[in-house]
Amino acid sequence: MTDQVLQVLIIGGKGRIGSSVAQDIATHTQAEITVTGRSPEMGRGVSFDLGKKCHFLELDLANTDKLRNAIAQSDLVIHCAGPFHHRDTQVLEICIEQGVNYLDVSDHRSYTNKALILYKKAVDAGVTAIINTGIFPGISNSLVRQVIEQFDQPEKIHLSYLVSGSGGAGITVMRTTFLGLQHPFTAWINGNWEEIKPYTDRENINFPQPYGVSGVYWFDMPETITLPDSFPTVKTVITKFGSIPDFYNHLTWITAHIFPKWLMQRHYMIEFLSHVSHNMTSFTNMFTGIGVAVRAEVTGKKDGKTVVYSATLLHENTAVAAGIGTGSIAKLLLEGKLKHPGVLPVEAALPTNLFTQIMAERKIQIHSDWG
């Protein structure tokens, strides 16, 4: 009797993040991978890039019958077709209907809220659906859980994300950044939901080398809403993002605060800014690199004292790091080492022992510090 080859379907698998996810799974598992794209041209070079166990499927998400058929033939579906700001939960719902495990790289609270509503349906179907995987959100959530577990009573979470240049990502990630500047958002501050303006309240954070002291600003992330629910004693959750070189932070601040709001809410403006930014970072990448730093700092009680503990993870390629975040969880699901029916954010689904194991497997170091 031969072992059945497991089938992984990656929707949007030809984008920078989707390709990184596919590469990680191709490297670390024996699964057969099908990546999708909206046109035949997107399928060129798939087998060359990822080997013979990777195939291409032309698929438009609007074609529900073809989507349902592709999901029904899969053991795991990974949704990488962003941006997720206005994406519906059709893929997740079909996975639950078909009894197929699900991951995504979603990165906006609007999608997170819609997905979490399906929790009971996933439980009833025995489907493990983990959302917001990737680097941030994703690995960032696991860093927080790892730090939280050092405390008797955690009280405050401060997450800082720093990306060099384009981060190795494509136009879609640029769109995500500018879409995140459009509206104020609510954050959990001192036990209350308070309205926050994006890209405000700059803080200079001391990251490990090669980054050093760098500026970060308020940015709307799914962790803002999932972490208070996952860790009820926490009264404050701060999520801040910054770029290298610092010049980009000032341009982003101008975009968020000087440009007319009505203009920033036009599709053509988002497209214009995304393409201009991508072209600029493609040039500066030569000098800055495309790495990422994620720092999780927690303040709380331990042995009756108020203490601070932080953990920081670095990677030289942001897109590859996102692929590792999702691909490593995919491997655990395919191997049957992770089973947690429901729709869950990473910190609620992935135990710290498995997180540290998969980071060690990929030789990713985590720098920890008390004080």
Rank of each mutant, 00 (worst) to 15 (best):
M221T: 07
V163A: 08
T233C: 02
F48S: 15
P184N: 13
Q30V: 04
V144G: 05
T356G: 00
I238S: 12
V307W: 05
H158D: 10
G291Y: 03
W253P: 03
T233A: 10
N317C: 12
A187P: 01
V292L: 12
T186A: 11
P351G: 11
A293M: 02
T177Q: 05
I96E: 02
T356Y: 01
W188T: 03
N101Q: 11
Q153M: 08
I225W: 00
V105I: 13
T200G: 08
I254T: 15
T128H: 00
V127F: 11
Y268Q: 13
T312L: 08
T318I: 09
T177L: 15
P341C: 02
G323C: 05
E155C: 06
A72V: 08
L251N: 07
V213Q: 13
Q265D: 14
G37N: 03
H28F: 12
V35W: 01
F231L: 05
G18P: 06
Q23A: 14
V308E: 12
I238D: 04
H79L: 10
I17W: 00
I96A: 06
F272I: 06
S328K: 02
T89R: 05
E223Q: 07
S368Q: 14
G51Q: 07
R16L: 10
K301Q: 14
G12V: 08
T36M: 06
E32A: 06
I78H: 08
A330P: 04
V123D: 09
S39D: 06
I244Q: 11
T2Y: 06
L162W: 09
T128I: 07
T233M: 01
I290K: 15
G138T: 05
G165I: 06
Y111I: 11
H28V: 00
W370C: 03
Q182S: 11
L67T: 05
L59S: 12
K114W: 00
H267M: 06
M174C: 07
I135K: 09
F207Q: 10
P83Y: 10
L6P: 04
G304D: 14
E149G: 10
A129D: 03
G242T: 09
D88S: 15
